[in-house]
Design a protein around this nucleic acid. Structure first.
Lengths: 160, 160
DNA sequence: CGTGAAATATGTATCGT
DNA sequence: ACGATACATATTTCACG
């Protein structure tokens, strides 16, 4: 599913699509300077090989009601793989957890958690954090403002 | 740009679109149980009022080459608004910074940074972090694995 | 909100480079 | 191997009920 050529045209397509995927195939072809059929073939290929994972609508969180972002740092008690996996599984299953990073150093996991209010965060802590008896400590950094949220990956400008 | 009615049908549309925006309007209308024209009208309205911010393709970072995620915690020296803004501006302008949270407590900013390798991270530190003379300290948590990355917002199941 | 018809877009086959 | 053209199918979009 890997090992495929991505040329400059592919890069330009990907760059466009990860910024704005609402373009029609024709408009995209036009922007890149390709015929619609060639453009479509490339986009389909990029989807098929998994370089384009999916296409989503990004919503304005604040337009949907109150919304708090938390950065949660988690330290586990014992470094046992099974216990890590147990925690990770629970975290991943929680709808409030938007992102989960397994990190090196003193901290073991960093979670990005979204809740409507503090009461909901409290319930989340009970259900996910306090529920794990191998969790030693956690620290919550409350976001006053999420000033950047960019889903676009960096596309290397060119390669030989 | 706010203050509009979002009914159950809108919620179902949003829920669908933030999971998969590759559906045609017809397929979406079908899934929700609406006529294509009514469906299109709603989606257009949701875009216009800014609830749907944009539509993007999510790429598989690893299919595009090496990719490291870092969680960077930043502590500022002095709590001056102008100095905060100066740092924030530089951070937001950096392509490596994918997310920026201004948080409460000991830490002032949390950044989610993406780079292809350690050398690139080093350059990023020079260009953004060490470049700010009001930055007191920063700590880098290196992600061994990003095990969740979900862009979908929680849609309250129902409201009166 | 639904229907139906005109305007657009997509997807495939085929040819040319 | 890749892109262009053309044509058949499917979708979007709008006026109207």
């Amino acid at each position: 599913m890997n090992n495929m050529h991505i040329d400059t045209i592919d890069r330009r397509l990907l760059d466009q699509l990860q910024r704005d995927a609402s373009l029609t195939n024709q408009a995209l072809a036009d922007a890149i300077g390709l015929s619609p059929s060639a453009c479509l073939k490339r986009v389909k290929r990029l989807k098929q090989v998994g370089i384009i994972e999916r296409q989503v609508a990004l919503l304005n969180p604040e337009a949907l009601g109150p919304c708090l972002h938390m950065v949660v740092e988690v330290i586990m008690e014992r470094d046992h793989k099974v216990l890590y996996q147990r925690f990770e599984k629970r975290a991943l299953a929680a709808a409030e957890v938007k992102q989960c990073y397994k990190v090196t150093g003193e901290i073991d996991f960093v979670l990005i958690v979204t809740v409507p209010d503090m009461a909901a965060y409290d319930r989340f802590c009970d259900a996910v954090l306090y529920a794990d008896d191998n969790l030693k400590k956690f620290r919550t950094l409350i976001s006053r403002k999420r000033s950047k949220f960019d889903t676009a990956e960096q596309l290397i400008t060119d390669s030989v």
